[in-house]
């Protein structure tokens, strides 16, 4: 009995040793990245949870920095958010914003990728130039577009007037302002999806198309039955990221509506950003961030499950 125990202990420590020997390299290589993520992502994540249950705001902020004391107020931040009618409106707007954007990015991205797969003259030039929207810093893009949406001098209205259509006061109403934001963001996001789709198309075995050709499949049939299904696994991670990024896209709406439509067409993140850094409602903003994360997390898990089943 005793001997057995001893043996199992020995084999236990041996197992640990061989475990370490086997995986030492992996863990050591991961360590630097892990430490950084621990400090910058995990720690703030839990810190944010603490703040979410507190009433931290601009009045008790200074004291908090000095002494680190927080007054906890339970779930009242959360109940305050959920009972506001504006929360549900903003949530609905964020969902519409995300769905339209991602569908447009995907559709255009794949269309461009499909066209660029054809044997065309100047193909590399087209491909390079079409990536430009991605290359321009976003905050500059948004400010440029803001100028282009100007009622009197903006390029968009000038162009409309050329065609005899009266100009639209883009940035003075919520509806048109939201359309303007959609146009800007769709314009911004197409190149990324296009590049991902191009990479995916290259990985499709040309033999599939040859076989389909022999069977007499039309162009459209080939796209529908070969290209799109094979593109799906490649696009899935890009769609997940695309949705998350669009849902959390702070810059476009924040900068486009600054000084004009301030908080008229807010999505969830811009609302949080304003609450935190313009109204200094830190506790409230922290609770709001937690809610946004939960929404995205649930969505992502369902989506990954759905992809896995197919």
């Amino acid at each position: 009995m005793n001997k057995e125990n001893d043996e199992s202990f020995k084999s236990g420590s041996l197992a640990l040793k061989s475990f370490w020997r086997q995986y030492k390299f992996s863990y050591l290589m991961l360590l630097p990245a892990f430490i950084v993520v621990l400090f910058v992502v995990i720690y703030p994540f839990f810190y944010n949870f603490r703040l979410a249950f507190s009433n931290l705001n601009m009045y008790n902020m200074r004291q908090f920095i000095k002494s680190g004391k927080l007054t906890y107020i339970g779930l009242s931040n959360f109940s305050e958010i959920i009972t506001q009618s504006s929360f549900w409106i903003i949530l609905l707007r964020t969902i519409i914003w995300t769905v339209i954007n991602v569908i447009a990015h995907l559709t255009f991205g794949i269309i461009y990728a499909l066209i660029l797969e054809h044997d065309l003259m100047f193909k590399p030039i087209y491909r390079t130039l079409l990536v430009i929207p991605w290359a321009i810093p976003q905050y500059i893009v948004v400010l440029i577009w803001k100028g282009m949406f100007n009622f009197r001098y903006g390029a968009v209205n000038l162009l409309l007037r050329r065609f005899g259509i009266p100009g639209v006061a883009w940035l003075s109403q919520a509806g048109t302002g939201f359309s303007a934001a959609l146009i800007v963001n769709i314009w911004l996001g197409i190149p990324f999806m296009m590049m991902i789709a191009l990479g995916g198309l290259q990985s499709i075995d040309p033999n599939f198309y040859e076989a389909a050709e022999i069977d007499g499949a039309s162009n459209w049939q080939q796209i529908k039955h070969i290209t799109l299904p094979l593109l799906k696994p490649v696009m899935a991670p890009a769609v997940i990221l695309g949705v998350v990024w669009t849902f959390n896209n702070l810059r476009v709406i924040y900068l486009l509506t600054q000084n004009t439509l301030t908080n008229k067409i807010d999505i969830l993140v811009t609302h949080v950003y304003r609450s935190a850094f313009e109204f200094y409602k830190y506790g409230y903003a922290a609770a709001f961030s937690v809610i946004i994360f939960i929404i995205l997390f649930i969505w992502a898990i369902t989506f990954i499950d759905y992809i896995g089943e197919n």
Partner: peptide, 15 residues
């Protein structure tokens, strides 16, 4: 990637 930037920004700022 799903953390809204404000979620990390606010605690990071305080930290």
């Amino acid at each position: 990637q799903m953390f809204p930037s404000t979620m990390l920004l606010l605690p990071m700022y305080l930290l």
